[in-house]
Amino acid sequence: MSDDRKLMVLRAIVQDYVQTSEPVGSRALVERHHLGVSAATVRNDMAQLEEEGLIHAPHTSAGRVPTDAGYRLFVDRLSAVKPLTLGERRAISQFLEGAVDLDDVVDRTVRLLAGLTRQVAVVQYPSLTRSIVRHIELVPLGASHVMIVLIVNTGRVEQRVVELGPVLAGDEGEGLVALIRGELNETAAGLPFTVAAARLSELAEGVGDDPEAQGADGRGPDAGSDPHAAALRTVVSSLCDALAEEREERVVLAGQSNLAKSGGDFTRSIGPILEALEEHVVLLRLLGQLSDDPDLVSVRIGAENPVSGLQSTSLVSVGYGSGAERVASLGVLGPTRMDYPTTMASVRAVARYVSQILDDNPAP
């Protein structure tokens, strides 16, 4: 049996089983596919594929189904990911282009993926640790408070309100806010988040004032201290605290009900799968184990998933980001009996459109 014919027979078995969910026999392969050999030859080929652990008989019948190893070989030998039609690409683009902010982008993306693939869609929010500071804005709120607005290249926006006390009153207050805004952006704009946070801390430590010079309530700079130094420290401290709190990664899911429609594909109940999906830390870990190449689609099949509750599923995922850097990942999870070429094409196409949106509209 040649390797080419082995792959041809295996491909035919995978395609038929994905389409029908029924074990595939040699006669059906000969009738549906132009294999160029007799049914007897196909039976011999199937026997060898079974010996190699690429297919197996789920029960005492003439039909065979792919194993995890069979799916893996099929995916690894795909000559090309099936391209989406022009209509499918246009529909994806139009659906995502209507998003108004990052939350809307993520929400639309996860619903779009679930609808396209009829699987469970998983979308990770852009990671702050992989993001770049685009701009820091300070917005005065009344005579004593200021809102800190951090805008990063992925469109993510973080806000926090701090009290600076009477130093904001009058024209001098406006000048102070403008001065600090300029210092913050000169220090941090254009830098990766982790680097920017360190530079901001150095900026605050470098101003010539007593860091303990705070008001009696500890909330703002003391009236007797250097207004600039004390206000800068308050803003930087609050900004860094807010970023530290928001550093926790998040994922959004949609389409869990699709699992019920594929209930027959799971040897056990879907309970363990749903329980695993509730553990977002687990999903983040799986999505994080990707190449930084945003065009490389990762496929984990069955037992390749390290989480026991997901070992009857396959996870197809890819990174997305602003520019050439991957800042997060998205993908779909479903039964191993999956239309891999179409699913991989859908996941990659959606990731490319999301990346384009982040590049074109990095922030509101």
Rank of each mutant, 00 (worst) to 15 (best):
M1R: 01
D3M: 08
D3T: 10
R5S: 08
R5C: 08
L7P: 04
L10Y: 00
I13F: 03
P23M: 14
P23I: 14
V24P: 00
A28V: 03
G36R: 06
G36L: 02
S38H: 06
S38P: 14
N44Q: 15
M46P: 01
A47P: 09
A47C: 06
E50D: 07
A57F: 07
P58A: 12
G63M: 05
R64M: 01
G70P: 03
Y71F: 12
R72V: 05
L73E: 09
D76Y: 11
R77F: 14
L78P: 01
L78T: 01
L84D: 10
A91Y: 12
S93N: 13
Q94I: 04
Q94P: 00
F95D: 13
E97M: 15
A99W: 05
V100F: 01
D101M: 02
L102Q: 10
D104P: 09
V105P: 10
V106H: 00
L113E: 05
A114G: 09
V122I: 14
V123A: 02
V123H: 01
T129A: 13
T129C: 10
T129R: 06
T129L: 08
S131G: 13
S131K: 05
V133W: 00
V133E: 03
I136Q: 05
E137Y: 02
L138W: 01
P140T: 09
L141H: 11
G142Q: 07
H145R: 14
V149A: 11
V152P: 00
T154V: 09
R156N: 12
V162K: 10
V162W: 02
G165T: 04
L168K: 00
A169N: 05
I180G: 03
E183D: 13
E183A: 13
E183K: 15
L184I: 02
N185V: 09
N185R: 08
A188H: 00
L191V: 06
F193M: 12
V195M: 10
A196F: 02
A197Q: 06
A197S: 11
A198K: 12
R199E: 07
L200C: 06
S201V: 12
S201Q: 13
L203S: 06
E205L: 06
E205G: 10
E205P: 07
G206P: 01
D209K: 04
P211V: 12
A213I: 06
Q214D: 15
H228D: 07
A229I: 08
L232I: 04
T234Y: 07
V235C: 13
L239T: 03
D241N: 10
L243G: 02
A244P: 06
E246R: 03
R250D: 00
V251S: 06
V251W: 00
V251C: 04
V251Y: 03
A254R: 05
S257M: 15
S262E: 13
D265K: 09
D265A: 15
F266M: 05
T267Q: 14
I270E: 09
I270S: 12
H280I: 07
L286V: 10
Q289L: 13
D295A: 14
G302A: 13
A303M: 08
P306M: 03
S308F: 11
T313S: 02
S314D: 08
L315C: 03
L315H: 00
S322T: 15
E325P: 01
V327K: 02
L330Y: 03
L333M: 07
T336I: 05
Y340P: 08
M344V: 14
S346M: 11
R352W: 14
Y353M: 03
V354N: 04
S355H: 12
